[in-house]
Amino acid sequence: MIETVAEIGSTNAALLARLAAGEAAPEAAWLVADRQVAGRGRAGRIWSDGFGNFMGSTVAHLRSGDPLPQTLALVAGLAAHRAVMALAPSLQDLVLKWPNDLLVGQAKLAGILLERQGDAVVVGIGVNLSQAPQLPDRQTAALSALGFPIERDAFATALAQEWSWALTRWHCGEWPVLRQEWLARAMPVGSLISVNDREHGLLMGAFGGIDADGVALLRLADGATRAIHAGDIDLVG
């Protein structure tokens, strides 16, 4: 089920409010907005409300025996990547960047924000379908400018299908398989990256993939490997 609204503050905030009020929020349901006036990204960033872009949120309900909740960010990224490639199969250089961005080359195409409330995780996804925001600290891309004009509602349907597929497998204990597919769609292991790590500051090294818990690995010049639990990763060069 995909519920569409013309304008909203934030689809994530709306679903969090519904959960707090005890309203039903089934996993198969999405809330999608034409415009967001108070959208949010990771670390307090503004989430562009560009008309024609995809801006939507859904809910995952945690169950006993599920994989670690932090891996849901990667599962959501995988679903978004699969949805884009289903509708733009000839798109080149689309990669996943840990923990939850889609890049075309080095330009950001999509981002994901997860927010937890009790045993529910609200998953918000934004994809630049028709226009890319101008950001001071990073390059951005839109599918329309790359030659792939995709209608928002068509993308919403594709994403809902891919998310349902991925979430079902995650609940069924198939995280190791999803992890391997995430790695296959991610920036190549060995890519030179910089990491603004909350514990250690700015670090540079080679991307070492992700471990079994979805934690990013950074290989330093001295041969050591550093686990990155939180922070921003950027491609260098």
Rank of each mutant, 00 (worst) to 15 (best):
R116V: 00
A132F: 12
S164V: 00
A60Q: 04
L135N: 00
N53M: 02
A86F: 02
W163V: 08
A160E: 00
A120T: 04
F148T: 02
W175Q: 11
V95P: 02
S144K: 14
L94I: 06
R152C: 07
C172D: 11
S144E: 15
A60F: 03
W182N: 13
G124D: 11
L109W: 00
T157R: 12
L94M: 10
G65F: 11
A73G: 15
E181R: 11
S144T: 14
E162K: 15
W98D: 09
Q131G: 14
E151S: 00
Q180W: 04
P69Y: 14
S90F: 11
L109S: 03
R179I: 13
A43P: 04
A110Y: 11
V123M: 08
R152W: 05
L102M: 09
F148Y: 13
Q92H: 06
G105Y: 10
R169P: 06
L103G: 02
G124Q: 12
K97Q: 11
I46W: 06
Q131W: 05
V95T: 13
A60M: 01
Q106P: 00
Q117W: 10
S64R: 13
V104R: 10
L143I: 12
D66S: 14
T157D: 10
L72Y: 01
S48C: 09
G124S: 05
W98G: 06
R82H: 03
E174L: 11
A88R: 09
P89Q: 03
H81K: 12
L94A: 11
L74F: 14
G147L: 08
L68C: 05
W163A: 03
Q139G: 14
Q117D: 10
E174A: 15
A156Q: 04
Q92C: 10
I125T: 06
L72I: 04
V104E: 04
Q134S: 14
G56D: 00
H81A: 08
L183Y: 13
R40N: 02
L74M: 15
L135A: 15
A145Q: 15
N53R: 00
I125F: 01
V122R: 04
M85Q: 05
L146V: 08
V121C: 13
A79K: 00
R82E: 00
P149H: 04
D153F: 05
